[in-house]
């Protein structure tokens, strides 16, 4: 009798396990059949009605059934858990094409980026940055740089005047003089900053930026200046570019040179960027004129130096293919955000 019941329970409970659709369902099956008050446990209690000798045999069967159910349960449970987990993952799917919460993208101004890049290159050679007044004494902007009053070199730069003695500096070169007057030698300084000339069109702005550099030691040569600027060109434009010096004239250097870099766009074969010349003008430079040392109270027989000046707008225009200098001061976000 009890054996039959046991058989029935076995079938019923296994079917119920198989039919369970969730872990909670499955747990209910456990409670119903082999929980403390479950049907199998209740049947166990009826064992008392059995003849004594049959009891061990029956008890064994019941335990076997319990073990069987446990293992069926575990198996079912893990498969249900797996299903439930995958259902949960499916439910938690996120459209990864959606944006995160919006954060503005910032950008450094391209002229700042180029300035910082140049500073970093020369800092590696031991140069340090310096700053100077934008409203400069005529003396520092011209006379100390070997450009006396009524010298034709003054025509090279159309000057904004503030009063008899002050101008808006037309070049960053006065920064050299301040360093020569104030600092100990040897000296390696860089002077980035704004300069002003009475001029305004597509390629000329009344205010633009230059980077001045000066290296002073007991003996320096044009060859070292060329080495330094060639290193700069390679770092800034790419290791394949070549450097060319052309004779030029600056009142505060002798000898003087214009520095060209082989066109980074076409490699020197000629293109629009380099006006089909194969070369890009990047800087003016030269060995410090003895009169400049003299004016600054430095013994030109003991000390020598070289200096260079480059146009930051020009370098940025070449590097980024910008053809209108006015874009730099319009501050249009559509322009600026391209540099973020």
């Amino acid at each position: 009798m009890l054996d039959d019941k046991l058989k029935e329970l076995e079938e019923a409970s296994l079917t119920a396990i198989a039919k369970a659709v969730s872990t909670s369902d499955l747990y209910q099956v456990k409670v119903e059949y082999w929980g403390k008050q479950g049907k199998v446990s209740l049947l166990m209690r009826e064992m008392g009605k059995m003849p004594k000798e049959e009891r061990p045999e029956f008890g064994k069967k019941v335990n076997q059934l319990k073990t069987k159910l446990e293992s069926a349960y575990t198996e079912k449970e893990s498969s249900l858990k797996a299903e439930e987990l995958s259902a949960k993952l499916e439910k938690e799917r996120i459209d990864m094409s959606l944006p995160g919460p919006w954060e503005a993208r910032g950008a450094k101004h391209p002229l700042s980026q180029v300035t910082e890049e140049i500073v970093d290159i020369f800092t590696r050679l031991g140069f340090s940055t310096r700053s100077g007044p934008l409203i400069e004494k005529d003396y520092y902007n011209f006379e100390a740089l070997n450009i006396p009053k009524d010298h034709p070199a003054r025509d090279m730069q159309d000057t904004f005047y503030i009063d008899q003695e002050h101008v808006l500096r037309t070049q960053t070169s006065p920064i050299q003089i301040h360093s020569l007057e104030q600092e100990d030698l040897p000296l390696r300084v860089l002077g980035p900053g704004a300069v002003f000339r009475v001029d305004a069109d597509v390629t000329h702005a009344p205010m633009f930026h230059q980077m001045e550099g000066m290296f002073v030691d007991e003996k320096v040569s044009l060859a070292e200046l060329k080495g330094v600027l060639s290193y700069f060109n390679k770092e800034f434009f790419g290791s394949e570019v070549k450097t060319r010096f052309r004779p030029s004239f600056f009142p505060f250097t002798e000898p003087s040179a214009e520095v060209d870099c082989s066109c980074p766009e076409c490699g020197g074969s000629g293109c629009r960027l380099c006006s089909f010349s194969g070369w890009i003008e990047v800087a003016g430079c030269g060995l410090v004129h003895p009169n400049v040392f003299l004016q600054a109270g430095i013994d030109a027989n003991q000390w020598q130096g070289y200096a260079f000046g480059m146009g930051i707008e020009r370098l940025a225009m070449v590097k980024y293919g910008i053809n209108d200098i006015r874009l730099f001061v319009e501050n249009d976000e559509r322009f600026l955000e391209q540099f973020s």
Binding site: L125, T129, R130, P186, R188, G227, V228
Partner: peptide, 23 residues
Amino acid sequence: YDDVPEHMPNARGAPKQQSDIFE
């Protein structure tokens, strides 16, 4: 000027402090 070779300088003395305005 093409005859002028390219040499790297031997910098003497320690680098100096950077300009605070720039930094």
